[in-house]
């Protein structure tokens, strides 16, 4: 029995505790629902994250390979100059979304992937290897943008699931049983005090009866003496 320390066994405390246990129980059921909701959301995101991660690794390897090819054909200086010639920068729009109190990023972006003539460097001056490398990296950036959103959401969700779980367990296994024990303890203490009181009253009553009898007897004796 783990009674909350420093509680006084009075009726006022008992009433306050009864109110507290109600709050704790409703909080517990709410948090449980939140945990389950987060879990459902988590599983959805998890599946997406896993496929995206695999695709990302593949894309990464592919673009590295293409870039190496381009460097072998054109040399890194030529590629650098092509990179300087680019006009359009990939831009993203970052906002946040709220899943049951968890703030997750929501990233929207226009496609980074461009057509060859939209890139800004001349088609004739460079070889196809450069085009392929640029192409591969553009699609990699596209993937990264999606993956960034999904993975960050996943991490946030996991963190919050852990926190919520801890709270649910704390309430279920510590807070609520403690309050229950304390309520029982106060109940017992109050009953005990009641019994004490009854005994005390009985004692007082018997004393009073005795005194009244003694007085009556004394009066009767006085009356008898006066008659005589």
């Amino acid at each position: 029995m783990a009674v909350i320390r420093g509680t006084k066994p009075t009726r006022a405390v008992l009433i306050a505790l009864r109110r507290r246990i109600k709050v704790a129980q409703s909080g517990h059921s709410l948090l449980k629902m939140k945990r389950d909701g987060l879990m459902i959301e988590f599983f959805e995101v998890l599946n997406r994250a896993r496929t995206i991660r695999q695709e990302l690794v593949q894309d990464f390897l592919k673009s590295e390979q293409r870039l190496n090819m381009a460097m072998a054909v054109e040399g890194s200086v030529a590629i650098k100059s092509v990179a300087f010639a680019l006009q359009k920068e990939p831009s993203v729009d970052l906002s946040s979304r709220n899943i049951m109190g968890v703030v997750v990023p929501k990233i929207s972006a226009e496609a980074v992937h461009k057509k060859m003539y939209e890139r800004g460097y001349g088609i004739i001056g460079t070889s196809a290897a450069v085009d392929e490398a640029a192409d591969a990296y553009e699609s990699l950036v596209d993937k990264i943008i999606t993956a960034a959103e999904v993975e960050t959401s996943l991490i946030k969700l996991v963190d919050d699931i852990e926190k919520t779980k801890r709270r649910v367990n704390g309430l279920e296994f510590k807070v609520i049983p403690d309050i229950k024990d304390t309520i029982r303890f106060i109940g017992f203490a109050l009953e005990e005090m009641d019994r004490d009181n009854v005994v005390r009253l009985k004692k007082l009553k018997s004393k009073a009866v005795k005194r009244a009898k003694a007085e009556e007897a004394a009066k009767a004796a006085e009356a008898a003496a006066a008659q005589a």
Binding site: E64, L67, S91, V92, L94, Y137, V141
Partner: peptide, 22 residues
């Protein structure tokens, strides 16, 4: 908003090829 990349030389070149300035 922009995308930024930090890493080794080759990959930096690749990302700048995709238009990443930073």
């Amino acid at each position: 908003m922009e995308i930024s990349f930090i890493g080794s030389g080759d990959a930096v070149l690749g990302f700048s090829l995709a238009g990443v300035k930073k």
